[in-house]
């Protein structure tokens, strides 16, 4: 299993660099994962998306629908793509320390 060093600690990740154990997530880990996505700095808007995803995931064990994410954060999809160039289901979910949504997505 691949591993990655974030904030001086080792973490198991999947082939796409998603954290294997969502419980290991912290703000520092999110900052480290941002680097792997080529995101230099996390703005308030980044955090708004990440925290919403995280909160939803902890409650429902899955990512929210993209429409709900946009509505609840007040950010249009286009802007979410600007914040997370690989998209909400990839970049944003990765930073939130949750598994990569797979299926017909």
């Amino acid at each position: 299993m691949p591993a990655i060093t974030l904030a001086g600690k080792q973490f198991d990740v999947d082939e796409n660099g998603f954290l294997q154990d969502p419980a290991q997530w912290s703000d520092e880990v999110a900052l480290g994962l941002a680097q792997t996505e080529g995101i230099e700095k996390l703005t308030d808007e980044h955090w708004k998306v990440v925290r919403y995803l995280r909160e939803y995931y902890m409650k429902f064990h899955v990512a929210p629908s993209i429409r709900m994410l946009c509505k609840q954060t007040g950010l249009p999809l286009k802007q979410i793509y600007q914040l997370f160039p690989s998209g909400p289901a990839k970049g944003a979910c990765k930073l939130a320390g949750m598994p990569k949504p797979t299926g017909c997505v």
Binding site: F60, H61, V62, S65, P101, T102, G103, V105
Partner: peptide, 24 residues
């Protein structure tokens, strides 16, 4: 595996399924 254990490909459990339907 998700289809067997959760019921769908994305892995949306019942509570999230209901929550999403309410939102929609």
């Amino acid at each position: 595996d998700k289809a067997h254990t959760i019921g769908n490909n994305i892995g949306i459990p019942e509570a999230a399924w209901r929550d999403t339907c309410r939102f929609l």
